[in-house]
Design a binder for these strands. Structure first.
Lengths: 294, 294
DNA sequence: CATGATTGCTGACTTTAGTCAGGTATCGCC
DNA sequence: GGCGATACCTGACTAAAGTCAGCAATCATG
């Protein structure tokens, strides 16, 4: 732990959070409870299903129901059944609710502007750039990596996206059913997913074969978090796990069109090796020594 | 108002504030109410006067008193009379309270570190730099500028600091009583202070003389906010007010040792003019046309 | 030493937030 | 058409947060 850096983060949290955060709540503060305002805000102009609101705001079902009744009572919201499923209910803003939403929207704008207004144009640019940077990097640091069975919903989401992307990028197209996948579970292998806020944003797998190097497969990162180092983290984690499982070396194959991946492998210390399999889609083969990695 | 920039700020507030803010409160969450933890944290190892706590946390006097009783009951805090004023009371942490504070401090460290840990070293550097930048610029945007009578406490703080600094920087020293100051109040002149969070961090004055250009005096910015554009804002505001009062031109004199100030004047469009007064401390004289400034 | 201001404390309240245990309507499915 | 699961609602509760008015001690000042 690095004292100096931690102090900057703590100072940042303290000042920025207190100040911006206080303002950020205050833009919702009207003559009604904060929870009601937040809910109204979250329903939005397009309306929203009650279940979605519940997860987004992380509220107790009963509490949320009561809040909706209160907004209904104030004439700001109507809750009606959705088309398909009669159990699912959808909250929509009334005309008055819509007006209220627009008012909050305007106040939010004003608040944001109040932070920019006193600055010179150059300072505004710098502030905007720094805010984007902080946000991107905090997003990166919220990505967690852990194992997951390859049959899991998150894994399947990743694999579907991965295969779709290969199919789109390979000149020859690509055709493989993800259910053909041999079981990537211990002891034959393992499967990692990278998760951001419950959303799966990346994956990677290892396959072990007795007497041979461990093989890295299915390394993929969602476009939404590309450039945040998630691929490198996945790769590193796969290497560590391969080493922990007793492998001296890991190897992998890749298609020539996946240039970022190839660059990643090279910069992570992989060296090109001769063809070791008959994969018709592979153009390059790489390996790296991982023995002793912790 | 600039749509694109405002959107970045709003997005920043939303994501960063929600996430960092939520964490920031969570580090205080123990088995006691949040308000108590916050109070204990704010009292700190050095102790704090009750009135100071009240303003810092912005709490109702009665509520604060009750919170202190609760912490006292838990054996974490003692509240005793201060030395001088028998009405003023000072809260101090007991041994147990101190231990609790250290625990919170450690948790805050861990939380800060949890944002850095998943990142690469280069990313950490970039995040730290961006956080500092956001904080500095938000601080800059919190500085407000308004008129204030020169006899006011804030004005006198500024003038004292200003004169102290001149005395320190001029080769010949500087000697002037701030009470010698002719009244810088309308219609003869005016006095501006820049304020950050109730702290005076800069000042500037105008003096009007019939038939002559308005004169800028006492432009000063506290070291704590130097480099944030406060001087330039003060100068601009003085020019606008001079123009509003009917002046065509403003002028000023300055000592050769005040190099940043001279640079500021030049870059703000001032041009050097011949000596127009007999100020023994002045080496340079500047003027700028302000007619038509809004 | 009387007076008004300041500082903090106490009691009596209200509102908000949040939890938990049922209950009812609906759906998918055999 | 019966069954378990799903999606939401209602009633009954608790704890925390916050407000307000009045009170007691202390201070500065004439």
């Amino acid at each position: 732990m690095d004292r100096q850096r931690v102090d900057v983060v703590r100072h940042f949290s303290r000042t920025v959070t207190q100040r911006v955060g206080a303002l950020d709540d205050s833009f919702l503060a009207r003559d009604r409870p904060l929870a009601q305002s937040r809910l109204l805000w979250e329903i939005g102009l397009a309306g929203a299903e009650v279940a979605v609101l519940r997860t987004r705001l992380d509220l107790d079902a009963g509490y949320l129901s009561r809040l909706l009744r209160a907004l209904e009572g104030a004439g700001l919201v109507t809750v009606g059944s959705a088309d398909g499923d009669g159990r699912v209910r959808t909250a929509r803003l009334t005309e008055a609710g819509r007006a209220e939403w627009h008012l909050l929207d305007r106040r939010s704008d004003e608040l944001a502007w109040s932070m920019l207004a006193p600055l010179s144009d150059g300072q505004r640019d710098r502030l905007i750039a720094a805010m984007s940077e902080v946000q991107r990097l905090l997003m990166a640091s919220l990505v967690t990596i852990d194992t997951c069975p390859p049959g899991d919903a998150r894994a399947r989401t990743c694999l579907r996206a991965y295969l779709g992307e290969l199919n789109e990028r390979f000149e020859t197209g690509f055709d493989l059913d993800i259910d053909d996948e041999p079981d990537l579970v211990p002891p034959a292998g393992l499967f990692l997913v990278a998760t951001l806020n419950t959303e799966a944003v990346g994956c990677g797998a290892l396959r072990f074969s007795a007497g041979e190097p461990a093989e890295i497969k299915r390394l993929w990162v969602s476009r939404s978090v590309r450039g945040l180092g998630v691929g490198r983290r996945l790769l590193g984690e796969l290497e560590r796990r391969a080493a922990a499982a007793g492998a001296d070396t890991v190897r992998l194959d890749t298609n020539g069109s996946l240039t970022e991946a190839i660059q990643l492998y090279r910069s992570a210390g992989y060296h090109e090796i001769p063809r070791y399999n008959t994969n018709p889609y592979a153009h390059h083969w790489f390996a790296k020594r991982v023995a002793g990695l912790s």
